[in-house]
Structures are given as C-alpha cells and as structure tokens.
C-alpha cells in the first residue's frame, strides 16, 4: 500500500514531575516545566514507522496546540514522519475531550485520504485514553485501542491489533479506515535519524491551520465546545515515595498489605 496515509497524533506535555498548581489563580503552572512528547505517543509513532518501513506510505503528524510545540514536533519528522499539521488557534484553547476530538477530526478531514490514525494510549497530562474512540466516532472510522502489536493486510485493507486483556490477550480485526491507540511501552521508539535532521527542520515540512482554515463550527471548538468545566484544582501528593514502615507480626503485616493491595488493584 504505497499510498497508505497514516496520521500520528503527537502531543507535547510538560514533564509530569515539574508541574505545579498556582495557588493564587488555581491554574496549572506549566511555564517553568520542561516539555516532552507524550511518552505513549512515541510508541504510537514507532508503530506507524514500522508499518511504513514494511509497506511504504506516508506519515503525517497531527497536533492541536500552540506554536511553541513546533520544535518538539520536528522530532517526529526526524524519526521518519513526512509532514506536520499543527492546528493552532487561540479559540482552540480550553478544549476538553469532545472539542479536542472534534478539532482533530476536522484536521484529519482536511488532510484528506487518511487510512490509519495512531494515538498514544493516553496522555500523561490527564486526558485519559478517550481521544482515540472519540476521534474515531467523529470520523466514523473503526477503532482498536490499547494495542501492543499491529498487522496490516494491505490488499484486504484491514488491520489486526493485539491487546492485553485481563491475564490474556485478544486480537481484533477491523477494516480501514481506522483509529488505533498504542499501549505505552509496547515497543522501543527509534532514535532520530540525524541524517535527516536538517530536512526535518525545513519550513515547508509543517503546515499550520487556524480555525479559519478548517471547516469548523465555532460552537464545537475550544471552551464553547467543551461540556466539562474544572471547578477546582489541587496539588495532590508528591511523587516521592512514602517510605512508610509496616510493623507487627507477619500476620499483622499481611493484613495491612492486604488492604493496601485491595485499594490499589
């Protein structure tokens, strides 16, 4: 499928351990935090690249976000993707899952001819795995989520994805076009190819679309397209380990552990 067109949704996220809540404004303070590409998205990228390696085709990177995402998105090009589409507009801001998936879907429609979309399983900054099915729904694409392996039947135009389920696995098959989400850590993302790094930073590798470029309904984007509102925000426990010592007889300790395990699992 030399003309297979794949899209990888990449998201730039602040490093989780560096994010703070500004007590005064009750908003997330992310300006000082270092950014990275959402780690599961890297696994999605690797999976797309492995398909491209084997069957050809091209990979477009699709992102909704501010212009400062650009240098990190170029990392995706240096890994082997072909083009970046950045959906960037002040009015896209404040989007929850509904508005985000709507806007991304409009981006996919505008790109045209997309067969297969890869997303990370979830994003470390909180939007939890609901983007892939939502995106598939707007586009009326099929979906397989949380996969750790993919197979493409190029002539039949179907994909098979394998995913881990409770103490086992299943393999699902759907016809293209489809959205897949890739399980975090399911592969090792290749490093950038430095021979194409300069190429990756050339201007024409990226297209920026604002809301006027997309066929969007203003009611459906950003804050107005988002049913949910954040009513309160708090810094939860730090990521530091508790280092709490459990004492007692083995039986007493076992009972405490039992409660901890039941809460956690």
């Amino acid at each position: 499928m030399a003309n297979l067109h794949m899209v990888v949704c990449l998201k730039v996220v602040p490093k989780p351990e560096e994010i703070r809540v500004d007590k005064k404004t009750n908003r997330l303070e992310r300006t000082d935090a270092r950014s990275e590409l959402n780690p599961p998205d890297m696994n999605a990228m690797e999976m797309a690249l492995s398909i491209k390696e084997r069957y050809g085709g091209k990979i477009s990177i699709l992102t909704m976000g501010p212009p400062y995402f650009e240098p990190l998105l170029r990392v995706g090009l240096a890994m082997g993707a072909d083009h970046i589409y950045l959906l960037s507009d002040r009015d896209f801001g404040g989007a929850d899952t509904l508005a985000t998936t709507y806007t991304l879907a409009k981006g996919v429609e505008k790109i045209e001819g997309v067969d297969l979309i890869f997303c990370g399983e979830e994003s470390s900054d909180g939007a939890t795995g609901q983007v892939p099915p939502g995106l598939a729904e707007w586009l009326d694409f099929n979906q397989i989520t949380m996969i750790n392996n993919i197979e493409l039947a190029p002539r039949k135009k179907t994909i098979r994805g394998r995913r881990e389920i409770k103490a086992g696995h299943e393999i699902l098959e759907v016809p293209l076009p489809a959205v897949v989400s890739v399980a975090v850590a399911s592969n090792e993302p290749r490093f950038m190819d430095y021979r194409i790094k300069d190429w990756a930073f050339e201007e024409e590798r990226m297209t920026v679309w604002s809301k006027d470029d997309l066929d969007v309904d203003a009611e459906y984007i950003g804050v107005s397209g988002s049913p949910t509102i954040v009513s309160d925000l708090a810094q939860a426990a730090t990521r530091e380990r508790k280092r709490e010592f459990l004492t007692g007889t083995p039986e007493e300790i076992a009972d405490k552990l039992k409660v901890i395990l039941q809460d956690a699992l």
């Binding site: 351990e17 900054d125 909180g126 708090a234 810094q235 939860a236």
Partner: peptide, 16 residues
C-alpha cells in the same frame, strides 16, 4: 480526576 502521574487533582463537572 488526577493527572500528571497523580500529581494534580481536579474536580470536574458539566452543567448543561
């Protein structure tokens, strides 16, 4: 809900 590896907790609601 929590985000950022459990570092941030938020209360979310929808009115309409």
């Amino acid at each position: 809900v929590t985000g950022f590896g459990g570092g941030i907790a938020a209360l979310i609601e929808m009115q309409n």
